[in-house]
Design a protein around this nucleic acid. Structure first.
Length: 326
RNA sequence: CGCGGGGUGGAGCAGUUUGGUAGCUCGACUGGCUCAUAACCAGUAGGUCACCGGUUCAAAUCCGGUCCCCGCAA
């Protein structure tokens, strides 16, 4: 009889998240019989070209799986807070969502946890995956921790690391961390439910370097070729495919200019001489860096689709193409 | 109604302003050269110029509408 009562008191969570990365985690929890009382995600809003109404990736998944969806525009709204309290969830699970007000993350009895795509305390902030690659890290990972007032600083519950390939870009690492993250999160939730968690202060981890990982804006994605070829390569792959490193180019006299995104790059050992023109290499366009040329074989011009450099060269001349520096 | 670029053989582009033969670079195919591959040479195929309507003797081109792709911005 005692067993029946524990079954009836099955523990539950509320999930909060917005993009695709969060979907994978939600999916793994849902498919592994974790009881999800509600899914909280960003409100539908006009976005993108033509300002069409867009739904978050998490909302789409939740809808398909008949989960209870809440989309408050204000997380401090009293009605929302009382609805949330009413759910009586034991734990809040947050992945790639907004910053929460204290009144929310202190609500559930077992606390509020977050999955972060780095080895905390390294790479705190909104863009940990990008920054790890940009800085040429050879290792990264995922961390689950209890949310506290300052962002990404709470007690660490679990952590798992993964190697970064030397030519790997964000697209592939993002996917791998998403998969790893869903395992770690599932394990974390189960451990919390079974009271098997021993969270550790981040202070005891601080032997590792602490790099920040702030949100990246388009403006920050412009390539600065006044650096070594390996730095430039790391920069490009750390932004590929999103938000993508770009260059401003002009033909002839600088009358018109176009931006070109650089998707796939490779450092060469061809030394840069005096004239800093873009050249045609064996396997891509060659952009001059401080020391060697960077070979780029997949690009996109504004208004055009992404294409292979050979396709670009079939209809465009490289002769008078110049990089605009400012 | 956020701003802007674009849709032309399989790919990338020119041609549109000033209507009148469908063009360039690559790819494909065939043959040549070569010990051989790439290259190179010669030749061949492949397009209702996104779609619908209008103007005109004549529309890729001018006018009106629709669909689709993309950059910026959010």
């Amino acid at each position: 009889m005692a067993k029946e009562t524990t079954i009836e008191k099955k523990q539950s969570i509320v999930f909060m998240g917005t993009p695709e990365f969060a979907v994978e985690i939600l999916k793994s929890l849902h498919e592994n019989e974790i009881e999800i009382k509600a899914v909280i995600t960003a409100p539908d809003k006009p976005a993108g070209r033509g300002r069409k109404i867009n739904q978050s990736a998490v909302k789409i998944y939740a809808e398909e799986n008949n989960l209870n969806i809440m989309q408050p525009s204000n997380l401090k709204d009293e009605e929302f807070l009382s609805d949330l309290k009413e759910l009586k969830a034991d734990l809040f699970v947050v992945v790639a969502f907004r910053m929460l007000p204290e009144v929310v993350w202190t609500m559930p009895p077992k606390g509020t946890i977050n999955l972060h795509a780095s080895l905390l305390p390294n790479y705190r902030g909104a863009a940990p995956i990008n920054w790890a690659i940009i800085n040429g890290e050879i290792k990264t990972g995922v961390t689950t921790f209890f949310i506290e007032k300052d962002i990404d600083t709470g007690k660490i519950i679990d952590q798992e690391s993964i190697d970064i390939g030397s030519d790997e870009n964000v697209g592939s690492l993002y996917t791998r961390l998403m998969v790893l993250g869903s395992d770690v999160m599932l394990r974390t939730v189960n451990n919390i439910f079974n009271n098997k968690v021993n969270a550790i202060e981040q202070g005891t981890f601080t032997e590792s370097a602490m790099n920040p990982a702030p949100k990246i804006f388009k403006q920050d994605c412009r390539v600065n070729f006044d650096r070594s070829v390996s730095d430039t390569h790391n920069f490009c792959r750390g932004l590929s495919p999103y938000p993508a490193a770009w260059v401003k180019l002009t033909d002839n006299d600088g009358e018109s200019s176009k931006t070109m995104k650089l998707f796939r790059t490779k450092p060469t050992s061809i030394r840069v001489k005096d004239n800093k023109n873009i050249l045609k290499g064996e396997n891509g366009l060659l952009f001059p860096c401080l020391d060697f040329y960077l070979e780029v074989d997949e690009i996109q011009i504004e208004g055009k689709r992404r294409m292979h450099y050979k396709d670009f060269l079939a209809g465009n001349s490289i002769e008078n193409l110049k990089i605009i520096e400012n």
